[in-house]
Nucleic acid binder design. Structure first.
Lengths: 196, 196
DNA sequence: GTCTATAATCTGATAGAC
DNA sequence: GTCTATCAGATTATAGAC
């Protein structure tokens, strides 16, 4: 279900956000033009400014919020698949690695590329990215608490897991190799296991 | 000593590379113009193309190589300051956090921002970034081996340390908080200690 | 809501004088 | 090696017809 009303139909606004998210994920904020976004979305140039009067900045914030949702859903699903939380985090890393390879190393984190570089100029973008990281940390922490970890430990571990996965995904992307993600996943599992 | 010949004088070429590295670190590849680089370097527009006939791409590769050197030197120095390798990695994270705050959260990793987004279009840039990560992993692994860790463990840990520090630095940058780096540093220290 | 035309500006890159 | 002028194209954004 990709629409708000659940009808399955994709409105113009939604297609624009989706295209912006995908393109900025690969090319960054400054590397992606509004013209390219509108073309990819099958919308006209004017439609973009009709739905996003704030222009590129407003569109980037919407794209980051979309990536926030997307990666959050991934984390929730993947972490619930396996009983052992340490093994669940390692599985996350493996799935991310497979996805990265499947996209020929182009589709990294949907938030990182968009926020990096534009953050200093646009506070709204930086804040949207910060909110995404905060939410992801919360999701992982919740999962760890559910496994019996004390709140303080769960929060520390969650922050480490999100940061490490983020960095490993970028390392894997530029190295064009699954190794950094797989290795980091294994070591994160070991770290989590040490708390029990 | 910032010059190749050790004289201390800064040539035009070197000033251009330095300015490019700093600006791309903050604004990314596409967000940084050659005009801005030449102005910041105190050089003329034509000088840039005199030293870098390959244009912006060639300049970006030189900027990444400079960042590679810079962060490599930092790692080497910082890791040699403390005897215990686990504590040394935590100290690295603390120093990075302090530097990030001191720059008002603008100066993240000198390689990440430059490579992200431009990597798909320019293979030379992606390769330069991959080489940087590889070198950093080697430096950390060497330090861990020197502390008595078996080669296999040292390599796994080194890859994890570099990825995690990278991700934590970005998380700290967008969150405008030292917390992600400090937390990740503590947990990496715990992980390393668990190997002994 | 959709679409086109256009304004105003900026970009990377080149040529050539000094 | 330094500097300036300039080209051709792309960029964000706006105006207004339909």
């Amino acid at each position: 279900m990709s629409t708000a009303d659940g009808s399955g139909a994709t409105g113009t606004r939604e297609r624009i956000v989706l295209a912006a998210s995908r393109l900025m994920q690969r090319q960054g904020y400054d590397g992606t033009g509004i013209k390219q976004i509108s073309t990819e979305a099958g919308a006209t140039f004017g439609s973009v400014y009709h739905f996003f009067p704030g222009g590129k900045r407003e569109l980037a914030v919407a794209a980051i919020r979309h990536g926030d949702q997307e990666f959050g859903d991934f984390l929730r699903e993947e972490l619930d698949r396996v009983d052992d939380p340490a093994e669940a985090v390692a599985a996350c890393a493996r799935t991310l690695a497979a996805g990265l390879r499947a996209s020929d190393w182009t589709d990294g984190c949907p938030v990182t590329a968009t926020a990096l570089g534009s953050a200093t100029r646009a506070p709204e973008i930086q804040q949207a990215a910060a909110a995404a990281f905060e939410r992801w940390r919360g999701l992982v922490a919740e999962r760890l608490r559910r496994s019996g970890l004390p709140d303080a430990d769960a929060r520390e571990l969650a922050a480490t897991v999100v940061s490490a996965l983020e960095g490993a995904e970028f390392a894997a992307q530029v190295s064009r190799s699954e190794e950094p993600l797989l290795t980091t996943g294994r070591q994160l599992a070991r770290l989590i296991s040490s708390y029990r």
